[in-house]
């Protein structure tokens, strides 16, 4: 036998750090969850195989359906408000001069604040007895109380998220907008294109890529929202703001139902993956469609 093929195990050694890191950060915790999701325990560290029982239980439970609907509604509202608002603000921001840095710093400020601090700020801000917003509204004669009124609780959470995260959309869109050379606008003016046509056929195509990232980030983040509603409303009043994440924590830590909680985590994870995939596919296929036919500036 010839010894032409030299076995070299050094390569394994080189990728080892990455494998270990990924194993610790993702694979091992995930497999633990998978492990819990198919077993039941009555204590004493004894586990029994239950198959897909927990999954069936979660998928058919009304509690899960309601939490899922609430979370989807929340994410939908957040996207519907933050994406157009972010684009509008980015369009209105100055493109040169001293105003640029002022605007950028102002926009970046909310992003620097930790989640739980944002929650605390808004919890105080909205309080009817001492909060600027709550007390202000009360003195105007508007009946507002996020701890008792369902609608007020939702409004407070949405307002808070818009305040906290619209900047992210703004910054992403702005970065796309400033990369458009001035001559494009000039050419459009000479063509006699309307403001809408300029947006639709020059600006939107240029920011489409970053917009996709903005939509994905905002969807994932809002779908996983936990800290802020936990601090502000604690899932209430009743369970009107109990989103999937809050429900999950209640189930896992509050009731210590590890099996159903593990099954729910996996379903939760798969939903996020699925929705992101749908967004991505739809937005990129739209890109391809447009290349083959497309409309014209009207």
């Amino acid at each position: 036998m010839s010894i032409q093929k030299v076995q070299n195990n050094k390569a394994w050694f080189m990728v080892m750090p990455v494998l270990i890191l990924v194993a610790i950060s993702a694979i091992i915790p995930l497999m633990t969850v998978v492990n819990y999701s198919v077993q039941d325990t009555f204590g004493n560290n004894e586990f029994f195989w239950v198959g897909t029982e927990w999954f069936q239980e979660i998928l058919t439970s009304e509690r899960f359906h309601n939490a899922l609907l609430r979370t989807l509604l929340f994410s939908g509202l957040i996207l519907a408000i933050e994406i157009p608002l972010g684009i509008l603000i980015a369009l209105a921001m100055p493109k040169r001069g001293w105003g640029v840095s002022v605007c950028l710093v102002l926009m970046a400020l909310p992003l620097l604040i930790p989640w739980n601090v944002v929650g605390t700020i808004w919890q105080l801000f909205g309080r009817v007895d001492i909060g600027l917003l709550g007390h202000g509204l009360a003195s105007l004669g508007i009946d507002y109380n996020y701890t008792q009124n369902n609608l007020d609780a939702w409004l407070t959470l949405i307002l808070m998220d818009v305040w906290h995260w619209t900047s992210l959309v703004v910054l992403l869109c702005y970065s796309g907008l400033v990369s458009i050379p001035e001559v494009y606008y000039q050419a459009a003016r000479i063509d006699g294109a309307s403001r809408w046509a300029v947006f639709r056929f020059i600006q939107l195509p240029k920011i489409k890529r970053v917009l996709l990232i903005a939509v994905l980030l905002r969807f994932m983040d809002s779908f996983m929202i936990y800290t802020e509603p936990f601090v502000i409303t604690g899932g209430g009043p009743g369970n009107i703001t109990t989103f999937l994440s809050i429900d999950l924590v209640q189930m896992a830590v509050g009731q210590f139902d590890l099996g159903p909680a593990a099954a729910m985590s996996l379903i939760y994870f798969l939903i996020i993956l699925l929705v992101c995939w749908i967004f991505y596919t739809v937005m990129t296929s739209y890109d391809n469609d447009e290349q083959s036919n497309g409309g014209g500036p009207q």
Binding site: P181, I190, P205, S292, N293, G294, G295, G296, P297, Q298
Partner: peptide, 27 residues
């Protein structure tokens, strides 16, 4: 007025047909 620049300025997302047709669509 019509103007052509040193840079190649066209509507990036529109087909060549729509690009050429754009002044007519505006009119």
């Amino acid at each position: 007025v019509a103007m052509v620049y040193q840079q190649f300025i066209n509507y990036p997302s529109l087909s060549v047909f729509e690009n050429i047709a754009s002044p007519l669509r505006v009119a």
